[in-house]
């Protein structure tokens, strides 16, 4: 039922579409959603790849090597991996900056808080704690990189393989505990985020709407289930 959709106001024709979109809060929500989608792809691939831990050191280290040589020799060694890292870092910065800007806007929109206790009906725990789960995940990501990617805080001796680093780390209960907590926070973040991005992207259809929550739950359970299993498997000696 689209007849004559004409006359959109002619404004700032030289500004690129995405920059124009980012100016508004609605546009920033698009940025949150699109970068969120990138992270969804990333956390799913990350979890699936790490399942190789269960196949032993050799398989796992070969997988790590494969990542480094992705698309090699078309691309120089590590180039594809680094490219993906660049995309992820840009997405992360956008996600965090947009979130901070929107949070500031929302604080301003209710300068006087309610004095009585709010009785929420629909706003669940996950939705109301996105900022905090987000911050926990962010801190965890930094630690996680320092542990496994850069090896700065990893307990394994210098020159250890990635498999040895993973096992050495998870054998320390405190590290495993932090890992478990951070993944639960990520799960809570995903539970709301995966559902929420459909709204922000304007993906709505009365026929498919009920699938959105199911997808969010399914995705969260799969990714977080897999992630949580790794430290537990190391602590219980299934992986050593």
């Amino acid at each position: 039922m689209t007849t004559m959709q004409t006359t959109a106001p002619a404004r700032s024709s030289r500004t690129p579409f995405l920059v124009e979109l980012y100016r508004s809060a609605l546009g920033k929500k698009y940025v949150m959603a699109i970068t969120g989608l990138i992270f969804m792809g990333y956390v799913l691939a990350h979890m699936l790849g790490n399942l190789k831990l269960y196949q032993g050191a050799e398989e796992f280290n070969t997988y790590a090597d494969f990542l480094r040589r992705l698309l090699y020799p078309i691309m120089p060694e590590s180039a594809t991996l680094n490219l993906m890292r660049v995309v992820l870092v840009i997405a992360l910065v956008l996600h965090v900056v947009a979130a901070a800007q929107l949070t500031a806007m929302n604080r301003k929109a209710r300068p006087e808080r309610y004095r009585s206790k709010r009785d929420f009906v629909a706003a669940d725990f996950a939705a109301r704690t996105m900022r905090w789960t987000g911050v926990i995940v962010l801190l965890f990501v930094i630690y996680h990189l320092a542990d496994f990617t850069w090896g700065w805080v990893n307990p394994a001796p210098e020159g250890a393989s990635i498999y040895e680093r993973v096992v050495a780390s998870f054998q320390v209960p405190a590290i495993s505990a932090f890992y478990l907590v951070a993944n639960l926070a990520l799960g809570v973040h995903l539970y709301h985020g995966v559902w929420s991005l459909f709204q922000s992207m304007g993906w709505v259809s009365r026929r498919f709407n009920h699938w959105r929550r199911m997808l969010a739950v399914g995705f969260t359970v799969v990714v977080i289930g897999g992630n949580l299993s790794f430290p537990i498997a190391v602590l219980t000696g299934i992986i050593d």
Partner: peptide, 23 residues
């Protein structure tokens, strides 16, 4: 229904894109 919010978001995206083309 909050479905209308998603519909608004979609129209806003299209409008921003169309506005740029029109200019």
């Amino acid at each position: 229904s909050i479905d209308f919010i998603a519909m608004m978001n979609k129209d806003y995206r299209k409008a921003t894109f169309a506005g740029r083309k029109a200019g």
